[in-house]
Amino acid sequence: MHKVVLYTQPQCPPCEIVKRFLKAYDINFYEINIKEDQKAKRYMLNQLEAYSTPTVVVNEQEIIRGFNLEELASALNIECE
Rank of each mutant, 00 (worst) to 15 (best):
E49L: 15
E31S: 07
Y30W: 11
Y43T: 12
V4R: 00
E81P: 12
Q11S: 14
P54T: 03
H2R: 09
L48M: 08
Q61G: 09
V18Y: 00
F21C: 01
R42W: 12
T8A: 09
K35M: 14
V4F: 00
Y7L: 06
V5E: 08
N28D: 09
M44C: 04
Q47E: 14
Q61I: 08
K41T: 04
R65W: 05
R20N: 11
C80E: 14
N46I: 12
C12M: 10
N77F: 09
V57T: 08
P54I: 00
A24M: 11
F21V: 05
R20F: 03
E71K: 11
P54V: 04
R20E: 11
T55K: 03
N46H: 12
Q61W: 10
N28G: 13
E60Y: 10
P10Y: 07
T55H: 06
E71L: 11
T8W: 01
K23R: 14
L22G: 00
D37G: 10
H2P: 15
V18M: 10
T8E: 02
D26Q: 07
R20D: 13
F67C: 06
L72F: 01
I64W: 02
S74F: 09
T8R: 08
K19R: 08
E36K: 14
V56C: 05
V58F: 07
L76K: 02
I34C: 04
E70T: 14
L48F: 05
E16R: 14
F21N: 02
R65P: 03
V18H: 04
L6Y: 01
L72R: 02
V5I: 14
N33V: 07
I32Q: 01
C15Q: 06
I64D: 07
V4H: 02
N59M: 04
E36H: 02
I64G: 00
R65V: 11
E71V: 09
E36G: 09
E70D: 15
T55R: 04
K23F: 00
C80T: 14
Q47V: 15
E60S: 11
A24R: 02
L22S: 01
Y7W: 06
A50R: 04
E36M: 12
E71D: 14
E62R: 11
I34L: 05
N33K: 06
E36P: 03
R20P: 02
N77D: 09
A40W: 00
Q9V: 07
A73Q: 08
V5F: 03
A50Q: 01
N28T: 06
A73Y: 03
Y30V: 15
L69M: 02
L48D: 02
M44A: 10
D26L: 01
L6V: 13
P14Y: 06
N68E: 05
C12K: 02
K41W: 04
N59F: 10
I17C: 07
Q11A: 15
I27R: 00
K41G: 06
M44H: 02
K41P: 02
Q61R: 15
L6R: 01
Q38F: 13
Y51V: 12
V18T: 15
Y30E: 12
A24I: 01
H2E: 12
K35F: 15
